[in-house]
């Protein structure tokens, strides 16, 4: 039943069949999505009508491939910008949080740490509506008292960034903290003894040590933001992100252009995932 204790043949065969079926279940929807992106048919379904690249490249009245689909291209660009700002902000604050909880001592540290973990266990929809409500209340307050209409506090690009940042930071915090815990404090002491300032130590010794974790966390933060749906749904304004835009299209019927976009997403994220794995050498961080 384990490597050193082989089971009966029937048992092992059954087990292997189960594993094979599991991986089939895992990859079937993705494989079929990719295959149908190249089917020369107006619907993303079988029968197979021949290979075509039109769902990527066409620009005719009947078919508009993804490379000419302004609506989807725009939402991809919005998602890129969102993910860029979210990963930048969450890396910054998440890393500061890791230093705070790993290296500083202060009152209520346990309580604050607990609070910092909660965003990961609050359902994304709830985060979205609370932030929408709070931004709205703040917006009303600012308008009444100061007479200024702040666009930031209405559903908008920056509200989406804030909403995603609010829980992705916790993720960065956990990844960076795990790495920081392995840091040998004698390195820091040595540097301090030799006359380095605290800032020098962080800049020249701790940050290079944290680099793999920072790259890994940054990549995952980027992906989490790029793909976020639940929180974004309530905060999104006129700049729709790709997942929201795709959702609206899938809900109202679908064309193989969605398969083409999915294909690009699958290829893109797989490349990012593999690069990340090779760079960080970690396999079990999701």
């Amino acid at each position: 039943m384990i490597r050193t204790l082989p089971g009966s043949r029937g048992y092992m065969l059954g087990y292997r069949v189960y594993i094979a079926l599991f991986y089939l279940f895992l990859f079937a929807p993705l494989a079929i999505t990719c295959i149908l992106a190249f089917n020369d048919s107006n619907f993303p379904s079988l029968p197979w009508k021949g290979f075509t690249l039109e769902w990527f490249t066409a620009d005719t009245l009947e078919r508009v491939g993804i490379f000419h689909d302004q609506n989807n291209l725009k939402s991809i660009w919005v998602s890129f910008q969102t993910a860029f700002f979210v990963s930048l902000l969450s890396l910054l604050v998440g890393t500061m949080g890791a230093f705070l909880f790993e290296q500083e001592q202060f009152r209520f540290k346990q309580g604050l740490y607990f609070l910092a973990l909660t965003p990961l266990v609050i359902p994304g929809v709830i985060l979205g509506i609370s932030l929408l409500l709070a931004a709205n209340s703040a917006g009303l307050f600012v308008e009444e008292r100061l007479g200024i209409d702040l666009a930031l506090l209405r559903p908008s690009f920056w509200l989406v960034v804030l909403g995603q940042f609010s829980f992705i930071t916790t993720f960065v915090l956990l990844v960076v903290s795990a790495r920081l815990r392995k840091f040998d404090p004698t390195l820091e002491e040595a540097a301090l003894n030799l006359g380095a300032s605290r800032l020098d130590v962080i800049r020249l010794i701790v940050i290079p040590f944290l680099k793999p974790a920072l790259i890994g966390a940054g990549a995952v933060a980027f992906l989490m933001s790029f793909e976020n749906f639940n929180t974004t749904l309530f905060l999104v304004g006129s700049d729709t992100t790709l997942p929201i835009n795709l959702y609206l299209q899938v809900r109202d019927g679908s064309t193989p252009v969605i398969n083409a976009i999915s294909f690009l997403l699958i290829v893109g994220t797989s490349l990012l995932a593999v690069t990340n794995l090779l760079l960080s050498g970690q396999t079990t961080k999701a």
Binding site: I32, E227, I258, L265, T283
Partner: peptide, 26 residues
């Protein structure tokens, strides 16, 4: 291999199931 599909957006995964399962599906 197990982690791979989960890097892809949830929407894409759900969409994959939709084109597999629906009445005109695969």
């Amino acid at each position: 291999l197990l982690l791979m599909p989960f890097w892809v957006s949830e929407l894409v995964r759900v969409y994959g199931w939709m084109i597999l399962l629906r009445e005109s599906g695969v």
